[in-house]
Amino acid sequence: MDLISIISIFVLACFVGYFVVWSVTPALHTPLMAVTNAISSVIIVGALIAAAAAGSSVAKWLGLLAVVLASINIFGGFAVTSRMLGMYKKKERKDA
């Protein structure tokens, strides 16, 4: 991918983000932050590349450490979001 296509993806994704986030109900803003936190840990991709590469052992260990940090975030972020979302319940209808 050349730089221009990457910039195009980025700019369009910013617009998608803008509209999608405004459609999130305010009641779910805390889960929104928790889940965005989890997905921003997609940075683990870079950490995995660094950890797998031969050549520099310092870079490899930095990568492994980054894998640990990003994994904490991924597992913790999705789990805590799911725990929160599980609490949102609707009113029990008497006639239903």
Binding site: A34, N37, I44, A50, A54, G55, K60, A70, N73
Partner: peptide
């Protein structure tokens, strides 16, 4: 959430540093 943010930030720093030290891998 603040603690989780700090982890993303630190992970980004580590990945960037690894990319600087081993640019061929990236």
């Amino acid at each position: 959430v603040a603690a989780f943010h700090s982890l993303v930030g630190l992970a980004a720093v580590l990945v960037g540093a690894a990319a600087f030290l081993n640019p061929e891998a990236f």
